[in-house]
Design a protein around this nucleic acid. Sequence first.
DNA 1: ACGGTAACTGACCGATCGGTCAAGTTCTGA
DNA 2: TCAGAACTTGACCGATCGGTCAGTTACCGT
Lengths: 183, 183
Amino acid sequence: MTTASELRDAALEEFASAGYLGTSIQAIAARASVSKASVLYHYSSKETLLDAALSPAIDAIAALLPRTVQLSGTDADRHDFLVGFVDLLMQHRLAAQIFITQSGALVDVPVVARAQQIIQQIAAARPQQTVDDQVRFAVALGGAAYLLAQAGAYGVEAAPDDVQLRDSLIRILDELLAPVTAS
Amino acid sequence: MTTASELRDAALEEFASAGYLGTSIQAIAARASVSKASVLYHYSSKETLLDAALSPAIDAIAALLPRTVQLSGTDADRHDFLVGFVDLLMQHRLAAQIFITQSGALVDVPVVARAQQIIQQIAAARPQQTVDDQVRFAVALGGAAYLLAQAGAYGVEAAPDDVQLRDSLIRILDELLAPVTAS
DNA sequence: ACGGTAACTGACCGATCGGTCAAGTTCTGA
DNA sequence: TCAGAACTTGACCGATCGGTCAGTTACCGT
């Protein structure tokens, strides 16, 4: 509604589609129908704008962090965590896309570095297991994130409220991460 | 060995770590210990350099395309395809990383557009099935690609000859794509 | 009505980018 | 030996970038 929030949303879409480095402040200004100087009035720098665009998603994943203990719990616990993870990806699809595709090139940006640390903590929360288990974990979470982030690039629309996709994703992740001893 | 191949390798590493837009010709020149003008003598433009860096990987995945028919075949056929896919990812890790993280922002670059078309053809070769099957396919291939491309960002080294990782990945992809009727 | 503050803008600045060019150097084959 | 091709380079160019600033307009409490 406000100009600031419009700029934040415009930046989120632009950063996701053209990349942070490929997006000029002018482009964001044009998308929100204001001048470049006006963008820099609301956000003191391009980096501040990226921070504002990503922060909600990072707060959400940080809130998910305490629940990683559920990964070592019962089947129901692990299921609860996966539901939270998938919902997080679907609700913050653009932010997830920005992080997945550009975190490597933007490690020197504080907000991205913070997000990377949280992801690493989630990965570390997984109890030390076999290589197979590590690969299962990486393929599951990475595959889900990549699927939702890049779905649009291959014609598949991933609407935030696509419950069929959500349920299917949770089911398959559940199956992939289930202890093999339970088979 | 030659200056041209050294520049191609330097560009591949730089594009993968800093991104195409985040890499200056000067940076590639410095990595190969030559001048910026010398880079533009061997490759007429920055885009030509990206083309040269990605082409071997794209040729390899194009060669894999005829084998997508195996996805509809027996378990052994599907296994053969997955072996080819995983080996491709491991042998062209940097090119895969560039494509996975930057194909969205570089759609207007011909060599990237060509790669995207090939990926789409592979995805389309999968016979029309349920949403579950589509999600399985996307999580498997996307997860494997993302794991190998981004492994370095999370401390896990994915050496091109890590047979343990390779075998584990193939086994899990096999399991993920096996028809549920076989369970 | 009015003073102050928030919002907005065009003009401008220094830096960096991709790319060109003329000149110099090194290599090679006859 | 030497002509010409291959290679390398510093200097330079126009364009675009992120960011600054002085000045203008719109809004709001009193």
